[in-house]
Design a protein around this nucleic acid. Structure first.
Length: 973
RNA sequence: GGGGCGAUGGCGGAAUCGGCAGACGCAGCGGUCUUAAAAACCGCUGGGCGCAAGCCCGUGUGGGUUCAAGUCCCACUCGCCCCACCA
C-alpha cells in the first residue's frame, strides 16, 4: 500500500522484526464475549451490550413517602454537583449533611512518601504485596525482576517509582523470548484474524503508523482475552516508486535502502508493544514472496484476466521517462522530480480485467464495512444504466453511442465525437479537413486538466459529415469537441440540446437546432436530465412527450429500449466509469511481470517451475529514460517456452498494489514454498475478521484486493466471496497547527521522542483517548500529560501498601457496583472500536478506587476484585504497566495477557436506588430518589410529593404526569 | 454540478432507545506542601443576573413534531472529503 492516487507519495509505517523462539500455546481462556455472530446475509451482528445509565447522583434522604418508596429530595444546603460519585455518596450519607463536603475529602496523605520510600530502596527483586504472597513467590522464577526505581525520582512524590521505559523494555523482551504472541492453529478455539494495513518501507515510523496500529493492537488483545485464537501479523510493503526515487536521490541501491529501512522500522515497531507475531512477517520484495506475486499474475493470465493494450501514460519529456499517476503533481500536472509539464504518450501495457467484476464489486452484502467506503467504491465504479444505440454515418459506418436517456433519442439534433474518435478522419469532408486537423492538434496538446475544466467554454468544429438518427432518419451534423472524452463511453455522443446542459450550451454557441422531447414540469413528471435550456425552464409542460414516434405518447425508458431492440437499432446497456487496472510500470523496483515474448508465438507465461523471475541486482537503476531492466545486457534474453527459440522477457514490473492485494494470504505461511500459502492455515484463519487502516485506500487497495480475491476464487485458489469481512477506518492525526504533518512544514511529531519521554503505554493510551478514532484530529502536545498522569496514578495506587481501617459495607458495595458497570461499558466499547471512552471509563474507575481506598476498602475481597478487573481492562490498552502490576504487585501468574476477560456481574452492577429528575413543563425543577424497583405509581406519587413540584403546581391538578422509562418524570401543568 | 460526512465550553471530546447537556481529560484560576520551583495533592471552571436561595439563556441558523429534541422531520449556513463536460 505504497501510494495513494493523486497525492504525493504516501509512506506507510513499518514494524520491527524479531524471531521468537518459543511456541508455547496460550492457555485456553474462558470465553466471555461471544464470537461475532453472522447473520444469514453475512453481516456481523453486534452483540447487544447496552447498559442502563448508571448513577444515582447526590442523594440525601429527606423523608420517606411510602414504606416501599423512599423518596429523597435534595437538601436545601445542597452539596456541589461534583461531589457526586457513589463512593462519595456513601461517605457523605454517613456524615452530617452540613459536613458532607468535608467528609468526601480523602484523609491527609501522610503515608504517601513513606509508601514510596518503602518501594524505592528495594533491590532488583519485587516485593510483592502481602496478598497472595506465596503465589507471587512461585511466579518469581518465571518473571523478570520488578522494576527498580530510578535515582532521579527519589525526592519526588509517591508515584515516582514508575519508570515506564524500564517496565516496557523489560516486558517486551520477556514476551518476545517466551513467544507469548505466537499464533498457531488451535481447533479448540474460535479464530480471529485481525489485520492492520501493512506499512510501506519509507524508513521511519511516525504517527501515521501508530494511530491505526496501537488501537488495533488493543482490540486484538481484547479479543484474545475473550477466548479467541488471535492472529495479528505484520509485514512490509517494500516494492515501489518511493523506494526507487529515494534511492535515486541518495545514490543507494533501492534494495539496500529498503532493507535498511525495514531494520529500523522493526526496531521502532517493537517499541510500540504490539502483539505482532513476528514469525509470520512477510516482505513483498523478498524473492520468496514475489515468486508468488508472479505466480498469481500467471493464474490471472490463464483466466483470461490479463491482457495487453495500447494506453496513454504520463510522460516527462525532460526526464525522458514515464511517470505513475501519483508522480504527476498539482493542478498543472508537472513531473515530481523536475517540474516539467507532463505529456501523454501511447505505450503498450498490461491490464487486469477488473471491469469483469464491476457488478459483483458493487455488492457489499457480506461486508460489515463503513458506509463511506461503500459509497466511495460505488461511485468509483460508477455504474450507469441505459442503452447503446447505433447511428450510421452517411457512408454507412456504425457509430455506437451510450445514453442513459434513450427516450430523448428523438431530440438528437447533432452528434459530437471526441477529437481522437477513429471515425473522425473518415467523416471529415475536404473543405473541413484543415480546421478539423487544427482542432485535433490543439486538443492533443491540452492537458487533461484544461480539457476537463467544467467552467471552460465549449469549443468544437464541424466535420462536414452527417449521421442518420435511427429513430426518425433525421440527417444530423457530426461535430468534434473536446468536451466529449474518448475515455468514457464510446467517445461519441448523440447531442440532445433540449435536455442536456452541455449540449444546450454547444447548440446555442454554434446555432444548432433544438428539438424538445419531454415536456414535464409538474411534480409527477419525468424531469429532463438537468435544468438545462430555455425550453425546460419556460414550459408549459403537460407531462407528455412531444416529437416522439407516432403513437408513443409516453414512452418510458424501458419501453423505448424494448422498442429499440425490436427495431434492431439498439439494446439495453450498462456503462461503467471503472477502468481496467493498468499494472505495468516502466520501473526497476517491483516484481517482474513473468511473461516472455517470442516472434512466432507471441506472449507466453514463464513456466511455473522457473519462478521466480528474479530481479537482477546489477542494473543501472538511475534514471536514463529507459526501463532499467530493458537496458540490462543479458537479463531480458531467454527462450520461448513454446518453441525454445530465443525470446525476450517483459521488462516492465508490476504495480505494487499487486503485491499488497494478497499479503494477508502470505502472512498465513510466509515460509511456505509449495504454494502462495499453506491450505491448512488458510482454512483455519481466513477470511480476515477485522481489517483496520486508512480510508485513503477505499478506491485503490481495498478495491484491488476484493477484485483479486474474486479472481482467485474463480480460479479455484481461494474460497468465499470476500477477503475481509469487517473494515474499520481511523482518521488522521494532524500537526499541532491543524495542518497535515509534513517535514517541510516542520510540524511532524516523532513517536520515538515521545516514547523516550513518556513511555509507550502513555502514548498508546493517549492516541486512543484523545480523539474519536474514526475522526482523528490535531496533535496536542500537552494532552499526553493526561494519560501519563493517569498511568502514574495507577502505579501509585497499586504500589501503595498502607493498611487502613475497613470501611462500611456500603463503601464496598458501591465500589463493586462501579467496577462492574465500568466492565460492562468497556466491554461494549471494545466491541465497537470506541477507544476514547474505554480510557475515560478506566480513568473514572481509578478515581472511584482512590475514593474507595480513602473510605476503607483496602484489604477487602471487593478491593482485590477491583484491582484485578481494573488491570485486566487496562491490559489491552497499556500492556506493559498492566503486566508489571499484575505479576509483581498483585503477585498473579504471568501473563496477564493470557487471562480471561472478566465477566460482568449484572446483579452487582445494578443500582438499588435511582435518582430521577422531575420536570415541570419541560424544565428540570427537582430530583427524587426512589428504589430501583419502584413502580410507576410510586414514582409518580413521589414526584408529586416534592415541595418544589407542589410550588409549581400552585394547588392545581397536573394535566399529565409521565414516567419515562424510569429515567425521568415529566409533570405537565 | 453530483454525492458523502460533519458542526456540542478556551481545546479534545461524553451523552447507549427522544429523557438531568458538557462525563473523562487538557488548558486556566485559587489553595496545600516546599527556602523556591517542579512534581504531587485539594477545590473551582458553559454564559448572564444574584449576598444567597435561585432564575434566565445555551449543542451552527430558521422553522416543525413532542410532555420532553444535541438526538427525529423540513429548509438553510459553514467546514472537510470523494467524484465530475460521465453522455
Amino acid at each position: 500500500m505504497a501510494t495513494a492516487k493523486k497525492k504525493p507519495v504516501k509512506k506507510k509505517p513499518a514494524a520491527p522484526k524479531k524471531k521468537t523462539a518459543m511456541t508455547r500455546k496460550a492457555k485456553p481462556v474462558k470465553k466471555v464475549v461471544k464470537p461475532v455472530k453472522r447473520s444469514a446475509s453475512g453481516k456481523a451482528v453486534k452483540p447487544a451490550a447496552k447498559g442502563k445509565k448508571v448513577a444515582a447522583r447526590r442523594t440525601v434522604v429527606k423523608r420517606a413517602v411510602t414504606a416501599q418508596t423512599r423518596v429523597v429530595i435534595r437538601g436545601k444546603s445542597a452539596p456541589t454537583r461534583k461531589a457526586s460519585s457513589p463512593v462519595a455518596k456513601a461517605i457523605a450519607s454517613k456524615a452530617k449533611s452540613t459536613q458532607r463536603t468535608k467528609a468526601k475529602k480523602p484523609a491527609p496523605r501522610t503515608v504517601k512518601t513513606a509508601a514510596a520510600k518503602a518501594i524505592m530502596p528495594a533491590p532488583v527483586k519485587a516485593i510483592a504485596p502481602v496478598v497472595e504472597k506465596s503465589k507471587a513467590v512461585m511466579a518469581m522464577e518465571e518473571k523478570p525482576a520488578a522494576i527498580q526505581p530510578t535515582p532521579r525520582t527519589e525526592k519526588a512524590g509517591r508515584d515516582v517509582s514508575y519508570n515506564p521505559q524500564a517496565v516496557e523494555s523489560k516486558w517486551q523482551a520477556k514476551w518476545e523470548a517466551d513467544g507469548l504472541y505466537r499464533a498457531m492453529i488451535d481447533n479448540s478455539k474460535p479464530k480471529h484474524y485481525a489485520l492492520t494495513m501493512l506499512p510501506y518501507t519509507s524508513g521511519d515510523l511516525h504517527f501515521g503508523h501508530w494511530y491505526p496500529m496501537a488501537p488495533s493492537d488493543a482490540r486484538a488483545r481484547f479479543m484474545r482475552m475473550n477466548g479467541y485464537n488471535v492472529l495479528f501479523p505484520i509485514g512490509f510493503d517494500a516494492f515501489g516508486l518511493p523506494a526507487e526515487n529515494a534511492a535515486i536521490k541518495r545514490g543507494i541501491h533501492p534494495k539496500i535502502w529498503t532493507y535498511k529501512n525495514i531494520e529500523n522500522m522493526r526496531r521502532q515497531l517493537r517499541t510500540m508493544g504490539t502483539m505482532f507475531d513476528w514469525e509470520r512477517e512477510a516482505i513483498s520484495a523478498d524473492p520468496e514472496y514475489y515468486k508468488w506475486t508472479e505466480w498469481f499474475f500467471i493464474q490471472l493470465f490463464k483466466q483470461g484476466l490479463a491482457y495487453r493494450k495500447m494506453s496513454a501514460v504520463d510522460w516527462c519529456p525532460n526526464c525522458n521517462t514515464t511517470l505513475a499517476r501519483e508522480q504527476v503533481w498539482g493542478e498543472n500536472r508537472v513531473c515530481e522530480r523536475c517540474g516539467t509539464p507532463v505529456i501523454k504518450k501511447d505505450l503498450e501495457q498490461w491490464f487486469f480485467k477488473t471491469t469483469k467484476y464491476a457488478d459483483e464489486l458493487l455488492n457489499f452484502d457480506e461486508l460489515d464495512w463503513p458506509e463511506r467506503v461503500k459509497v466511495l467504491q460505488t461511485n468509483w465504479i460508477g455504474r450507469s444504466e441505459g442503452a447503446s444505440v447505433i447511428f450510421k454515418t452517411e457512408q454507412g459506418d456504425d457509430i455506437e453511442i451510450f445514453t442513459t436517456r434513450p427516450d430523448t433519442l428523438w431530440g438528437a439534433t447533432f452528434m459530437v465525437f471526441a477529437p481522437e474518435h477513429p471515425l473522425v478522419d473518415k467523416v471529415t469532408t475536404p473543405e473541413q479537413r484543415e480546421v478539423v486537423e487544427a482542432y485535433k492538434a490543439q486538443a492533443a496538446r491540452q492537458s487533461d486538466i484544461d480539457r476537463e475544466a467544467v467552467d471552460k467554454e465549449k469549443t468544437g468544429v464541424f466535420t462536414g459529415g452527417y449521421a442518420i438518427n435511427p429513430v426518425n432518419d433525421a440527417r444530423i451534423p457530426i461535430w468534434i469537441a473536446d468536451y466529449v472524452l474518448m475515455s468514457y463511453g464510446t467517445g461519441a455522443i448523440m447531442a440532445v440540446p433540449a435536455h442536456d446542459e452541455r449540449d444546450f450550451a454547444f447548440a446555442k454557441k454554434y446555432d444548432l437546432p433544438i428539438v424538445e422531447v419531454i415536456r414535464p414540469v409538474g411534480q409527477d413528471s419525468i424531469l429532463p436530465y438537468t435544468g438545462a435550456g430555455v425550453m425546460v425552464n419556460s414550459g408549459p409542460f403537460d407531462g407528455t412527450k412531444v416529437n416522439t414516434e407516432k403513437g408513443r405518447k409516453n414512452p418510458g425508458i424501458s419501453a423505448v429500449i424494448d422498442w429499440l431492440e425490436q427495431k434492431g437499432i439498439g439494446k439495453e446497456s450498462v456503462n461503467y466509469r471503472y477502468r481496467d487496472w493498468l499494472i505495468s510500470r516502466q520501473r526497476y523496483w517491483g516484481a517482474p511481470i513473468p511473461m516472455i515474448h517470442c516472434e512466432k508465438h507471441g506472449w507466453n507465461p514463464v513456466p511455473e517451475n522457473q519462478l521466480p523471475v528474479l530481479l537482477p541486482d546489477d542494473v543501472e537503476w538511475k534514471p536514463t529514460g529507459e526501463s532499467p531492466l530493458k537496458l540490462h545486457p543479458t537479463w531480458k534474453n531467454t527462450t520461448c517456452p513454446v518453441c525454445g527459440e530465443p525470446a525476450v522477457r517483459e521488462t516492465d514490473t508490476m504495480d505494487t498494489f499487486m503485491c499488497s492485494s494478497w499479503y494477508h494470504l502470505r502472512y498465513l505461511s510466509p515460509q511456505y514454498d509449495k504454494g502462495p500459502f499453506d491450505e491448512a492455515e488458510y482454512n483455519y484463519w481466513m477470511p480476515v475478521d477485522t481489517y483496520t487502516g486508512g480510508i485513503e485506500h477505499a478506491t485503490m487497495h481495498l478495491l484491488y484486493t476484493r477484485f483479486f480475491h474474486k479472481a482467485l476464487r474463480d480460479a479455484g485458489i481461494v474460497e468465499g466471496n470476500e477477503p475481509m469481512l469487517q473494515l474499520r477506518n481511523q482518521g488522521i492525526i494532524l500537526g499541532e497547527d491543524g495542518d497535515k504533518m509534513s517535514k517541510s512544514k516542520g510540524n511532524v511529531v516523532a513517536p520515538d521522542e515521545l516514547v523516550a519521554q513518556y513511555g509507550t503505554d502513555a502514548l498508546r493510551t493517549y492516541l486512543m483517548f484523545a480523539y474519536r478514532w474514526q475522526e482523528g484530529g490535531p496533535w496536542n502536545s500537552q494532552g499526553i500529560d493526561g494519560t501519563s498522569r493517569w498511568l502514574r496514578r495507577t502505579w501509585a495506587l497499586f504500589t501503595e501498601d498502607e493498611k487502613r481501617p475497613l470501611g462500611s459495607p456500603e463503601t464496598l458495595k458501591v465500589l463493586r457496583r462501579k467496577v462492574h458497570q465500568t466492565l460492562r461499558r468497556v466491554t461494549r466499547d471494545f466491541e465497537n472500536f470506541e477507544f476514547n471512552t474505554i480510557i475515560s471509563s478506566l480513568m473514572e474507575l481509578l478515581n472511584e478506587m482512590y475514593k474507595a481506598r480513602d473510605a476503607g476498602a483496602v484489604g477487602s475481597p471487593e478491593w482485590s476484585e477491583a484491582r484485578e478487573i481494573y488491570l485486566k481492562m487496562l491490559a489491552p490498552v497499556a500492556p506493559h504497566i498492566a503486566e508489571e502490576l499484575w505479576t509483581n504487585q498483585l503477585g498473579k501468574p504471568y501473563s496477564i495477557h493470557q487471562q480471561a476477560w472478566p465477566k460482568v456481574d449484572e446483579a452487582a452492577a445494578k443500582e438499588d436506588m435511582i435518582e430521577l429528575p422531575v420536570q415541570v413543563n419541560g424544565k428540570v425543577r427537582d430530583r427524587i430518589t426512589v428504589a430501583a424497583d419502584a413502580s410507576e405509581e410510586e414514582i409518580k406519587s413521589a414526584a408529586l410529593a416534592s415541595e418544589t413540584v407542589q410550588r409549581y403546581l400552585e394547588g392545581k391538578e397536573p394535566k399529565k404526569v409521565i414516567v419515562a422509562n424510569r429515567r425521568l418524570v415529566s409533570v405537565v401543568v
